[in-house]
Amino acid sequence: MRSFFRIIRFALQSMMRNFWLSFVTVSVFVLTLITINSVIILNVLANASVKSVEGRVQVTVYFTSDSSEDTVKSVQGYLLGLSQVKEVSYVTAEEALANFKLNHQNDPVILAALDEVDGNPLGQALKIRAYNASDFPFILEALETPEYKPFIKEKNYDNYESALKVLSDFSEKVRLGFLILALFFGFIAILIVFNTIRVAIYVHREEIGIMKLVGANDWFVRGPFLLESIFYALIATAIMAAIIASTLSFANPYIVAFFQGVDVDLVAYYTTNAAPLFGAQFGILAFLGLGTTAFAMRRYLRV
């Protein structure tokens, strides 16, 4: 017990008195955590974006100008009867025209062409939202009945299909990309941490020799170094938590504003997951630090 407290004291003393070495080691640990957290944050944002884009996908079904409002309403009812459909909104011909003009307000050619035409070239329309973007093919297929088909002038089925494909591909790729990125950074982090600790122990090799000469057993020599690497992990995790807390409290409004309408609340994400997130980060660092320290001492010091 007495030795245990002494080992703790030696570890703390050595950290203070080798300030620059400690500083560098903690910095490397913090940088490692910054990369890990960047990957986490990007992943959270990407997931939220993909979800929100998926949620925003809608299919517009345009009806011929001679279809009656009743027909359109009955199609709306039919669609709402499908379990995959979340929302169907009715758009009058006038609203469709107004929307169209609004969407093309910076396009004088199209606006001019519209003026050339008599009356309203656009008919009524239905805007469909689904619970899952991947259900659209099924929903649109359902409109291919002889009952409704003649009234339907156009569905932007084709456009959306490719958009959907891109989107689901994108979310797959994003996940894979982040996995690769995380592995890559993780690998680099391991190399850097490994090397930093190796250098730190190399710097101390003479002292370790002296400790052994005056009768320190292996644990007395190893203990402080192993503890130091745990303390470094602890300090780095605390610093990282402080960085995250201060950065997010400052940046969260901007992030939320940037991702208009998307449900991204990183502050909430980090607060609800604080224990597992930072626990895991501390665990990773401590494991890495301990492993490297043990390895370096075996390899370079034979203790």
């Binding site: 080798n18 002292e207 009768g215």
Partner: peptide, 16 residues
């Protein structure tokens, strides 16, 4: 030990 005072260097032999 360069990072220990004279006292601590001597004490170290007893501490271990």
């Amino acid at each position: 030990l360069p990072k220990k005072t004279a006292f601590e260097n001597v004490a170290f032999a007893l501490e271990v």
